[in-house]
Design a protein around this nucleic acid. Structure first.
Lengths: 144, 144
DNA sequence: CTATTTGCCTACCGTGTCAATAGGTTTTAT
DNA sequence: ATAAAACCTATTGACACGGTAGGCAAATAG
């Protein structure tokens, strides 16, 4: 599961992308538009600042702004920063458990393949794609 | 994350597939071979029985056996039974939250696309594939 | 018939994460 | 000076995770 941290982070960044201009965007505005508690967003934005995704401007007239062009953010790096890791199993991921059975495990190859697929999916999508609602398949895969 | 429930369940079923024959396989044997606490496996196997994946035979000489041919189990149905849902976000999945923003959410299409991909991945693989170590791509996608 | 092996059942528990909330301090423009 | 904004630390309740413990019921081998 992707937690609210990762999901809200994406929505904050999309919001900042959509409302970027001269002035930084106050978190209160983002919170109101996204209908998320501002207090909770503070925690999330703090991590986005630490990760170098956004910069904050204190004081009146302050707020947050993106540090790069929306095209230069991959969804993968955002989610990985917020979630710690995108791996589905503990044998892989950030600090993998050194499983003594890895040489004989019949399921490990599948997990590896899955992890690779997930990685490819999220790292091939940018913040710009989300703002513009481009699908990853650049076509009419979707039938609503 | 896929929890130990889902992962251990797969390993139990693989083990049962590999050791199937006339007699049912005692859980103790599975636990020893898989190096998993038998007590914990009881919990997992109980759900596998409830899901109709295996049947148990009580008494001396008893144990568990698969109810179908390994070809007739998809990895997807096994994981979905054990994990409840394979969805990555709460807006989708088993009992989805009816989010008031679904019509305007810029991230929802991506989650839907992702969920579909995950579903396709796991439902296109069978228990037999795991036992025989077939990759999902039937080729040399992997470079170790 | 008895001993043993097995599944089956209920209950409990420590730890950690999730999703917030609360209440303040500092910075800066007007 | 005032207001608005970021920034900081701490706390909390609920719940899931990953087990452990102990015993009962069934069935077979001897």
């Amino acid at each position: 599961m992707i937690s609210t941290k990762g999901r809200y982070a994406l929505r904050v960044l999309i919001d900042l992308a959509e409302h970027r201009g001269e002035k930084p965007v106050p978190l209160k505005d983002v919170a109101d538009r996204q209908e998320i508690s501002k207090k909770y967003l503070e925690i999330i934005v703090k991590e986005l600042v630490a990760g170098g995704f956004v910069s904050g401007v204190s004081g009146k007239g302050g707020g947050y702004r993106l540090t790069r062009d929306p095209l230069d953010y991959t969804v993968g790096e955002i989610l990985e920063t917020m979630e710690g890791s995108l791996s589905v199993v503990s044998c892989l991921g950030a600090d993998p458990v050194d499983c003594p059975r890895k040489a004989i495990c019949k399921t490990l190859p599948m997990w590896k393949e899955f992890d690779q697929m997930v990685h490819d999916f999220f790292y091939s999508r940018t913040l710009e794609d989300l703002v513009e609602q481009n699908t990853g398949l650049a076509g009419d895969y979707y039938v609503i």
